[in-house]
């Protein structure tokens, strides 16, 4: 335990081209980029599936099925298949990012379509009946009410990406995972445990950020943070979207 603390507090590990700040930056870059790409792809797709009900069967099965695929195996397979066709750093970076995106899409997709689907049918009916057009129903009613699950999906995806980015150190990518993998290979327990503490702290921080975001963008009328709430408004708001490595 003392060794781990000593490693973490050693100033030398906080400086330079292989220091903690740089690795943290890399980790955030890989994770943030993958999450952004996945969100740009999956949020609109999920909202569309939820709004129209089209492609629902496919979305359910793809997002469910991908949960069973181990991320480590997927990562290795991607590097071996794509790596040789790309040159230099891209041979690691692109397949890794691709895997991160692939793993981040299912929870985001599931959150978005489940979020829209669980919107009170009466509210949707009223929206149309009052003369909202399709996109107005989507933007003014479905999206605000789907927000808790959309963000819940994004949070699950963020955790998945942060965790898998750690594993990507085994294929030569940077990030905080380097400390764990390098520590493992040279049997330096202080280094790997120190790295593990950093990774765990980052994951907690990211989740906390997600919780704050949720608080900021979700209407108090939807979360029921205004005192008395009925079972109807609470239902569905807590659907869990588990997908992790």
């Amino acid at each position: 335990m003392n060794d781990v603390l000593k490693w973490l507090t050693d100033g030398a590990h906080w400086r330079g081209g292989e220091g903690i700040p740089l690795r943290l930056g890399e980790h955030l870059l890989y994770s943030g980029l993958a999450l952004l790409v996945a969100a740009v792809l999956a949020v609109p797709l999920g909202l569309w599936v939820g709004h129209t009900g089209r492609g629902r069967y496919l979305a359910v099965n793809v997002s469910g099925g991908l949960r069973a695929v181990p991320s480590l195996g997927l990562l290795f397979a991607a590097i071996m298949l794509l790596g040789p066709r790309l040159s230099g750093e891209a041979g690691v970076f692109i397949p890794s990012e691709l895997v991160l995106v692939v793993l981040a899409v299912p929870p985001i997709l599931a959150g978005a379509y489940a979020g829209v689907e669980q919107v009170d049918a009466a509210a949707r009916d009223a929206a149309r009946g009052m003369g909202m057009r399709g996109w107005q129903v989507l933007w003014q009613v479905e999206v605000p009410n789907a927000m808790p699950l959309v963000i819940s999906g994004l949070r699950s995806a963020a955790l998945q990406v942060v965790a898998t980015a750690t594993l990507a150190a085994t294929v030569g990518l940077g990030g905080l995972g380097r400390f764990l993998i390098d520590g493992l290979s040279v049997r330096d327990y202080a280094q790997m445990a120190g790295g593990a503490v950093l990774v765990a702290a980052l994951a907690l921080l990211v989740d906390l950020l997600g919780a704050t975001l949720q608080r900021l963008v979700v209407s108090p009328g939807v979360t029921g943070q205004t005192g008395r709430s009925t079972a109807r408004t609470r239902r569905g708001g807590r659907l869990r979207l588990a997908l992790r490595s």
């Binding site: 009170d120 509210a123 605000p144």
Partner: peptide, 22 residues
Amino acid sequence: AAQLRRGIGYVIQHAGLFPHRT
């Protein structure tokens, strides 16, 4: 259709209020 509906009041069984709006 949308214009038509805006000119007609519509009340349904469970009210169908928008939970996210005051």
